[in-house]
């Protein structure tokens, strides 16, 4: 290895700092340009790998489709929600797209939601409740009030990796105190709701 000439050494010394400044500025420019100029988001692009992914086992079928509901009818079913997270996340459930009837039917369908393990969409056998109920005998109309992640129920903290939770949903038709006129007004009425689970990284 040759001994350094002083001039070369001074050149390197002198150039080092300006070089770094230019490098830093260039990098900031490049990164800003890449990130912030307008572009169309293409969800099919190669990096949109879905670093968190939430799925359920309903296969596109509605959990409840109840016709000819009679007083004190009740039903209990399960749905399994699976979170695939690359970073620790939180899953919450809430209601969207409420279908309101003119006759207040949504005040008469009382829903209870608990979570735990076991069971599946097809068969709730083996379900074991863990923890307190998320929603306890609340009318659909009240559940529909909670329609965003912030107010959602559950607060299921998901570690990185794949984890599942079974939600057991029960409803009953509560006709307590209804006069015949109110009953008659509900004929042909329909109420409905979508349950949505959302996962957000912590």
């Amino acid at each position: 290895m040759s001994k350094l000439s002083l001039r070369a050494q001074k050149l390197m010394v002198g150039a080092a700092t300006p070089l770094a400044v230019v490098l830093a500025a260039g990098m900031v420019y490049q990164a800003s340009y890449a990130a912030f100029t307008g572009q169309t988001r293409n969800s099919g692009n190669e990096w949109a790998t879905g670093s968190v992914k939430l799925t359920d086992d309903d296969g596109g079928a509605a959990r409840f489709r109840v016709a000819n509901m009679l007083p004190n009818d009740t039903q209990t079913k399960c749905i399994v929600v699976t979170a695939d997270a690359s970073v620790p996340s939180t899953v919450k459930g809430y209601a969207i797209n409420p279908v309101t009837s003119t006759s207040g039917l949504e005040n008469k369908v009382m829903v209870t939601i608990v979570s735990g393990s076991g069971g599946s969409f097809d068969d709730c056998t083996g379900f074991t409740q863990v923890g307190a109920a998320h929603v306890s005998d609340a009318p659909l109309s009240a559940i529909a009030q909670v329609n965003s992640f912030a107010g959602g129920f559950g607060g299921w903290v998901v570690p990185a990796g794949v984890s599942s939770k079974t939600y057991q949903i029960s409803w009953r038709f509560d006709t307590t105190g209804m006069t015949q006129a109110q009953i008659d007004a509900m004929q042909g009425a329909k109420t409905g709701i979508d349950m949505q689970w959302e996962m957000q990284s912590n």
């Binding site: 879905g50 409840f64 109840v66 000819n68 949505q196 959302e198």
Partner: peptide
Amino acid sequence: GFTGNTRNSSMTWSPGPW
């Protein structure tokens, strides 16, 4: 933040004649 969601859609209830 990362976000994902899943949904069970179109749950409906309608009473019978009673």
